[in-house]
Design a protein around this nucleic acid. Sequence first.
DNA 1: CGAACGATTGACCGGCATCAAACTCGGTGG
DNA 2: CCACCGAGTTTGATGCCGGTCAATCGTTCG
Lengths: 272, 272
Amino acid sequence: MTRPSDNIVMLAQRGYASSNPCTDCLQRFRCPAFDRFSTDGWAQDESGLLPRKTVRAGHTVFSPGEKFSALYMVRSGFFKSYSIDTNGDIQVTGFHFPGELFGIEGIDTGFHDNTVEALETGNFCRIPLAFFEPSGRLDGDVRLSPSEETHRCRYQSLIKVMAGIIARDRTMVFSLGKMCAKRRFAAFLLDISDRMQNSGFCGDEFRLCMSRIDMSNYLCLAIETISRLFTQFHAMDIIDIDRRNIRVLNRTALHSIVAGDNSDQTLLEKVS
Amino acid sequence: MTRPSDNIVMLAQRGYASSNPCTDCLQRFRCPAFDRFSTDGWAQDESGLLPRKTVRAGHTVFSPGEKFSALYMVRSGFFKSYSIDTNGDIQVTGFHFPGELFGIEGIDTGFHDNTVEALETGNFCRIPLAFFEPSGRLDGDVRLSPSEETHRCRYQSLIKVMAGIIARDRTMVFSLGKMCAKRRFAAFLLDISDRMQNSGFCGDEFRLCMSRIDMSNYLCLAIETISRLFTQFHAMDIIDIDRRNIRVLNRTALHSIVAGDNSDQTLLEKVS
DNA sequence: CGAACGATTGACCGGCATCAAACTCGGTGG
DNA sequence: CCACCGAGTTTGATGCCGGTCAATCGTTCG
């Protein structure tokens, strides 16, 4: 069968494609750089279009210590971000799907403190921070002088991005603190499913873009626990799982597990 | 545009304490509403000063569903914020000390989704969201027309507030996911201590403003675990604890527990 | 083919939640 | 003044979820 990401990958052009401005970008309606108010309909700086770039699996978009000067919009492919603590332990902090933004965490210090890495060949668009500034400002990247209305839209976009991150982090805190492994994992599957759908894929049958190790690290569970939960959910006919290919068979069951009417015990234990 | 002299008159008329504008506020240097660029040196709207309010222990600043239209700066006292999930379970999401801001979480939906409650009698200042808007805007609250420079400062303040929340949430995720109870608790004590100091109190001897229940809920641990850790740290001569009064005796030990060279075992186990 | 890596499955055990009981302290009323 | 109560806290006993260790299997690649 065809890989779910083929359709988008084929549309993604490399580098500056003058034939492929924002008006043709599949992610334009989720992109804060796409101006609905401008006459021509696509974001641009002095040099033309916003820069795009393609990275292969395992390669990074940026690393800790690099100067923070832009946001990034995933155009195709999947990315993960992680940071390394003082003990050298890795913490996967998130996954990024097509149409999603990443890289704003460094906004307070001015430097990135995490790494963003492509899970498979992917393409992203770099949106300079100056794009969101209150008024035209030259910072070596780009000079922009948006109209007041345009700027307000962009301003609110930036706020919204950060608010979304806060909301997602709060969910994560709740997940880690109050949910047992099963609930947490079910919530993770639903989250991934929803975001796949938002990115234009089928939400019920797709390929998991990350390894079991990344999953376990992100969810703060042991790899073995992840594996056991996969087989358990499979035995309960909630999912079909083959390598990284997953099919959601019983979404309702996942939701009831997440709801977890009782704090942490074996809801639906004997279904199989 | 109102002149400073006008405001003084208005203050007297409205019963504001004219002897206590922002220039006398102890928290002014941590407050985004305090304008270092303005000639008179304090934040104001058309009606005079930013509104302040006092609440008693157990009373709320706002509740879920209320319209989001302002940030809040703690002037004195201590506050906690918590939300209630679909199962009716409470999750304490944070504590707020003098000089700290709260209430920005509702910025994306336009409504607060959590409750902020005073832990003891406290006073806070309400900063209308319009204060941070790119340009003068009338939203029923206040009309402001800041200069470009002033606005950029305010704009960046808002960004910084949100970035700070994101950083704090990330720390929380790491704490909940990767730290055992002892490390988590030690990190909590250090966090509280630092913030007490930032708020102008002694960082080594103070009164814990929240109950054991709030602590345990916030840290996602059982009350019994919190209690055991208090006695354990006391036995190790790391702290002195009497009811809610705590004295930090060995800050270095707390730091080494948080560092946790090894994942989750009994560092300093046999010190007593 | 063999090495390396990821994934699965089983056995074991430890940290922390849970249950239960005792204790402290402040408030109330007889 | 003491008895009583209830909320908050402490301490002990027990059990279980999920981490750790270890062996096996499947897949990929040099």
